[in-house]
């Protein structure tokens, strides 16, 4: 595939959880975005804003009370329309490599890293024979910079950083065109965060994959992203080029601005209040009670226009009339 060709195309994706007493929770509403070859899109937002639900929807891992609508095209497949057999047999691992939030919990405690890698190689690549499996597993470890002399260790004998590399090695095995990383750096210290993020970036740059990263860590996002999608109360409220978003131009949505201003190397001032309940969203802009730019217009739902969903977005320098 060539640079720039779209790998994942999401259109109008919504997820509703049906709760007891006919309540519904609007966890994701009308999400639209693309991820292309050689590109990293980073999805950021406050805890509980729906990031993980969106990822689970793409992988077909939502619980039974979830209702999904819209489209998510991965090549010729609509991920939201195919059955569980297809997802388990041809999508997860093969077309989407998943890098989990807590790798240690994702690995089986009673088996060594070598045995994890060999099993995955056998399942995803059709490699047969002991010697061939062994060398393919060692190659897989090397691709993720997992040290060869640690291959016979058990997951609990690994530091957080090495467990993360083991998980990355597993995710890279099937040559999946799309990598999905949900909070890949939570709980790691800063050096390990930087290392993990740089390694993921390297795989995208060198192997022509597309990468979707979900994170609440804005410095990790700034380090890895080509583009940023900001999620608030289940909606993507801004899509931006990372350099503009984190650079001097800054974000255009008031919520995105607030998030950046909360960083300890910026103003360190929290956005007032808390996010609204996804079971009881207002009719208009869900950010209105916390926003400094609210007017009467904000009682109506702002539509996504020029990649920002706000009635009064900040206007980037240089484009002012």
């Amino acid at each position: 595939m060539t640079e720039g060709s779209v790998v994942l195309s999401v259109r109008g994706l919504s997820v509703r959880f049906l709760m007891p007493g006919r309540r519904t929770v609007a966890a994701v509403t009308d999400a639209h975005f693309d991820v292309a070859v050689g590109e990293c899109l980073t999805l950021i937002g406050e805890s509980g804003c729906g990031k993980s639900v969106l990822a689970s929807a793409l992988l077909g891992l939502l619980p039974g009370n979830a209702q999904t609508t819209g489209e998510a095209r991965l090549g010729d497949l609509d991920l939201l329309a195919v059955d569980e057999r297809t997802l388990a047999g041809t999508v997860r691992g093969r077309r989407i490599g998943l890098i989990p939030q807590s790798p240690a919990a994702h690995l089986t405690a009673v088996r060594t890293i070598r045995s994890h890698l060999e099993e995955t190689v056998a399942a995803l690549t059709g490699t047969r024979g002991r010697a061939a499996l062994r060398s393919a597993a060692e190659e897989a470890a090397e691709r993720a910079a997992f040290p060869g002399d640690h291959l016979d260790r058990y997951p609990y004998e690994l530091s957080g950083g090495l467990a993360q590399r083991a998980a990355t090695a597993l995710a890279l095995i099937g040559d999946a065109p799309l990598l999905l990383a949900d909070e890949p750096t939570t709980g790691l210290d800063r050096d390990l965060v930087d290392h993990t993020v740089d390694a993921l970036r390297h795989h995208v740059d060198t192997s022509g994959r597309a990468l979707l990263v979900i994170t609440h860590d804005l410095s990790a996002a700034a380090r890895i992203a080509d583009r940023v999608a900001v999620m608030y109360a289940g909606r993507i409220v801004e899509l931006a080029e990372a350099t503009a978003f984190f650079g001097s131009q800054g974000p255009r949505h008031p919520y995105s601005r607030g998030l950046l201003q909360a960083l300890p190397d910026r103003a360190f001032i929290p956005i007032p209040g808390m996010p609204p309940e996804l079971g009881a969203l207002p009719e208009g802009c869900a950010f209105a009670t916390r926003c400094g730019r609210t007017t009467d217009a904000c009682a109506a739902l702002p539509r996504m226009m020029n990649a920002v969903a706000c009635h009064h977005p900040y206007v980037p320098e240089g484009t002012r009339a």
Partner: peptide, 14 residues
């Protein structure tokens, strides 16, 4: 605050 987003972090520290 290791698990938390920037705004919640700033709010808890405050």
């Amino acid at each position: 605050t290791a698990m938390l987003d920037a705004s919640t972090t700033a709010a808890l520290v405050a």
